[in-house]
Design a protein around this nucleic acid. Structure first.
Length: 281
DNA sequence: GGCATCCTGACC
DNA sequence: GGTCAGGATGCC
């Protein structure tokens, strides 16, 4: 569910609320499979007493840097996958049946990880583990060091269609189904276009479109379709700006041609058949 | 690449 | 009852 803008929003919200707070205990953990590493005893032993130095993000991973106590040098990495939420709960709130992890803080507040589909995962990483996670992910599209020239070189090395390539986290970090569709529409590129057929100006448009779409979504606090909530438990507003995602049958904001939905790379895909043509057509 | 799998809830 | 869902992985 959450993609880069949603995870970025949650990271900022958490940073504002739990930075320098100490985790006093694990109040609830009823889905052991969500903890990927280390083993459960070490996970339970390490967290209590550790202080959250800061909350950040890498790709779609939320990263809580831990300091002091047993947590020194560790990073708590959380991935929300499809239906996960992570927020600082109101002291009066009780975790429901889908809230599988509750972390108590030293100010009487608690962090809730709720995930009905149970796809979400948590890792406690040492510095080497954090490096490995980072190394397995592509560049951050909003980074100052991610240039259109670099992007063009990257795209030229793949004949894969654009959509599955942009969804591949090892190629580029943070995009998911919504923002790939929105970005390709803004760049007027067909999702099946082989990556290595882009001209330099196509890549420049795609590079600009990526930043426009992602920055607008962050400014709007993310997109809420069903499950997504920010770090305060509130919905985002970016869904109002969708041009194509879920807009099948509605007029293209550029040319008024009805938006169509198809399937590309096993994912629902939304595009304007007039603006986004394959070169052969 | 395609496909199945991990899960549950919403919707038709 | 069947289909779909913002993600990722492992198997052809």
């Amino acid at each position: 569910m959450p993609e880069l803008p949603e995870v970025e929003t949650i990271a900022r919200d958490l940073n504002a609320q739990v930075r320098h707070r100490t985790i006093t205990g694990i109040e609830k953990l009823d889905w052991a499979r969500m903890v990927e590493t280390p083993d459960l005893p070490q996970f339970r032993a390490t967290l209590p007493g550790s202080q959250i130095q800061q909350a950040g993000r890498r790709a779609k991973w939320l990263l809580l840097t831990l300091d002091r106590g047993h947590g020194s040098g560790w990073t708590l990495a959380l991935h929300l996958r499809m239906s996960g939420r992570l927020w600082v709960a109101d002291p009066a709130d009780l975790p429901d049946q889908h809230t599988h992890l509750v972390l108590a803080l030293d100010d009487q507040r608690r962090m809730f990880f709720r995930d009905p589909r149970k796809f979400g995962r948590v890792r406690l990483l040492d510095p080497a583990g954090l490096n490995a996670l980072d190394a397995a992910l592509g560049p951050e599209p909003l980074s100052d060091t991610f240039t259109a020239e670099q992007f063009h070189t990257m795209l030229g090395q793949h004949r894969t269609p654009l959509k599955p390539l942009l969804l591949n986290q090892a190629f580029l970090a943070g995009l998911g189904n919504i923002y790939v569709d929105e970005t390709l529409w803004l760049a007027r590129l067909h999702p099946l276009r082989p990556a290595n057929t882009l001209e330099a100006d196509d890549t420049a448009h795609l590079h600009t479109a990526l930043r426009t779409v992602l920055e607008r979504a962050i400014a709007a606090g993310g997109s809420t379709l069903r499950d997504y909530r920010n770090g305060y438990g509130n919905i985002g507003q970016n869904q109002a700006f969708f041009a194509v995602y879920g807009c099948q049958g509605k007029p293209c904001p550029h040319c008024a041609t009805p938006i169509v939905r198809c399937v590309v790379a096993q994912r629902g895909t939304h595009l304007c058949p007039f603006c986004q043509k394959l070169p052969d057509q």
